[in-house]
Design a protein around this nucleic acid. Structure first.
Lengths: 180, 180
DNA sequence: AAGATACTTGACCAAATAGTCAATTATCTT
DNA sequence: AAGATAATTGACTATTTGGTCAAGTATCTT
């Protein structure tokens, strides 16, 4: 019937997720988005909607990929619960050593910069966080500890963003492991 | 020799801290700052400098007041270490119940939105965080646990920003208290 | 081959942005 | 009282912002 889309939707969604992940909502301008995706404004609007809608797509993409990966790992009964928690808490340690690691956790970033002023963002962020919490509860069978590990994990990601070195982040993991 | 300043510097610094605390760096425009402080642009520039300098003043103000309050409490030997940690971890629980609580922790907010792209912000944030860490270490005499409590505290503040209710934040406190 | 249809492009817009500056106003020193 | 000095004001600017739209282009169906 008509012309095809020229872009690979998956690649564009990854680019969207990355650009908002790195720079936040207010820190990302439309020209940043155009450069990251290689698309013109008109195409972005036609395909996805306005800037808020693009941000939502980025959050959804993060949930589908990064959050789902973590959730599957935490629900993998082939590994002991201790190992699963160790893998989770090693993420921020690795992040402290790479450039992309300084992007932090998109859930934390969105919680801080948009959740308090945008209901949709709050829903997305809380939804993703609750998925991780549920997987943690599945792994260790303790809701109180699950919330606590979630907090320590997010706190570690914040400390990485603040520029703390990996030795300090390791302290967080080791205390968590000696607790469970 | 010349005309006096008409504004109360302390009040202006409090207003500055509050407006950046609530809206972040990119989320705060000059007109927001003018409204919050009651000053015109020219006066703000003459007295404090450009927007980045204003942000630094806000971070310094937060360190002088909020961070110092927490540090003094943690170093107060009239209270048992357990009570001091309990008081610290009750902060986020109270925050989950008020409008201002949704502002979160300015250290976390700045860590996420400016520290990765601005060296001065990173220095300020890390400096304040290290002051709390040192006070925690003083209180419980355990560096590993101190880093861990710091992370749990920041994580709790992030979860409050994400909109979690106080019952969930209480879980974080109770796990910390059963750990020390 | 020829419409019909949808994608793509880039020029365009109004509003908001951070920052500047000359003119005005108030207070101190002498 | 008068001049010197500094704070205050608000108009001004250049740039960037998110968002729109008409014109052009590619591909499908018939």
């Amino acid at each position: 019937m008509a012309r095809h889309r020229e872009f690979d939707e998956n690649k564009v969604l990854d680019a969207l997720r990355n650009v908002f992940w790195e720079h936040g909502y207010d820190g990302t301008s439309y020209s940043d988005i155009m450069k990251a995706t290689g698309l013109q404004k008109g195409s972005l609007y036609a395909a996805f909607g306005d800037k808020r809608a693009l941000y939502q797509k980025a959050l959804a993409r993060y949930d589908e990929k990064e959050v789902s990966d973590a959730v599957h790992m935490l629900r993998n009964d082939a590994l002991s619960p201790e190992i699963r928690i160790e893998i989770l808490m090693t993420g921020p340690i690795d992040a402290a050593q790479t450039k992309e690691g300084r992007w932090g956790c998109l859930l934390c970033n969105a919680a801080i910069d948009q959740a308090p002023i945008d209901q949709e963002t709050e829903n997305s962020v809380k939804g993703s966080m609750e998925r991780i919490k549920a997987a943690l509860t599945y792994a260790i069978d303790d809701e109180v500890k699950a919330d606590h590990i979630l907090a320590a994990y997010f706190g570690a990601r914040v400390m990485v963003k603040a520029g703390f070195k990996k030795e300090r982040i390791k302290n967080i993991r080791s205390q968590i492991l000696s607790m469970i």
